[in-house]
């Protein structure tokens, strides 16, 4: 095959055409792949705001149902500069996420109140508390974003000790950080290396309509902790961007377990 190609070696112009065609093919494949692989907004976000590691008054009450949350939130941060790999994709597709929390806080609150009328007082108290931390999060997050947008592309910001591929400022990593937050308060296990993989489907209102355990190492205690974390985290979910259902897989593990 090499020989055949060698014989037909085209001139510089042909080379350009070749190159273009191949790039186009690759581009097509990548985008196609993205479509095939479902509704995940994207795969390799680089910019990441770690909600989890910011100070939280009470991690247990990770519940953002502030009734006025939307009003006082700072404006959504500027769309993050596109990370390199995404040049291979359709730019239009990956831009929207920005900060879904700020953009869509209001509907979620409404939905929330519908669902939990009985606990309204409690919710309100929590909401006030939450709002404070929330705005702290936001400003810290914005700062971090600005710093990063201004300076180094792949900085140290984000989760300390994380590889940078952990997540991005998109909806899936937003959900991921919510789950992490809730998981902190529920994690318990009785086996050495427990693992549970769950696929979550979130409807356009931000509710989990389906959760499927796709794999479990069999630690019942750990499974309970995962389900509790999901239930807790769900209370703080905002609707996915673009009015679409969202589906993604999450793998739950104890920290530092199974990494070596």
């Amino acid at each position: 095959m090499r020989r055949a190609l060698k014989r037909n070696e085209p001139g510089p112009g042909g080379m350009l055409v070749w190159s273009f065609l191949l790039h186009a093919a690759l581009f097509f494949l990548v985008t196609q792949l993205n479509i095939l692989s479902g509704v995940q907004p994207d795969n390799a976000p680089v910019y990441y705001v770690d909600v989890v590691n910011l100070p939280v008054a009470r991690p247990r009450s990770g519940n953002p149902a502030g009734s006025t949350a939307g009003a006082t939130e700072p404006a959504p941060p500027p769309a993050a500069p596109k990370p390199q790999p995404e040049e291979m994709r359709l730019p239009a597709k990956t831009t929207p996420p920005s900060r879904p929390k700020t953009a869509t806080a209001a509907p979620s609150v409404k939905a929330k109140q519908d669902r939990q009328e009985t606990t309204q007082d409690f919710e309100e108290r929590l909401a006030r508390l939450q709002q404070e931390t929330e705005s702290r999060h936001e400003s810290a997050a914005l700062d971090a974003l600005r710093r990063r947008a201004a300076g180094r592309g792949k900085g140290q910001a984000g989760m300390p000790g994380a590889a940078g591929k952990e997540a991005g400022s998109d909806y899936s990593s937003y959900i991921q950080s919510r789950l992490k937050d809730a998981f902190k308060s529920t994690i318990t296990f009785q086996s050495r290396t427990p693992e549970v993989r769950v696929r979550l489907t979130i409807d356009r209102a931000g509710h989990i309509v389906r959760q499927r355990i796709e794999y479990s190492s069999g630690d019942r205690l750990f499974e309970g902790a995962v389900l509790q974390a999901i239930a807790k985290a769900e209370k703080s979910f905002t609707p996915p961007p673009g009015g679409q259902d969202f589906e993604h897989g999450f793998v739950f593990k104890p920290q530092g377990v199974g990494k070596n």
Partner: peptide, 19 residues
Amino acid sequence: MRKGMAGLVTVLFCGALLA
């Protein structure tokens, strides 16, 4: 030659991605 390689490699990559 180089371009041939390029083509080859690209095709391989596409295959890898698909795989």
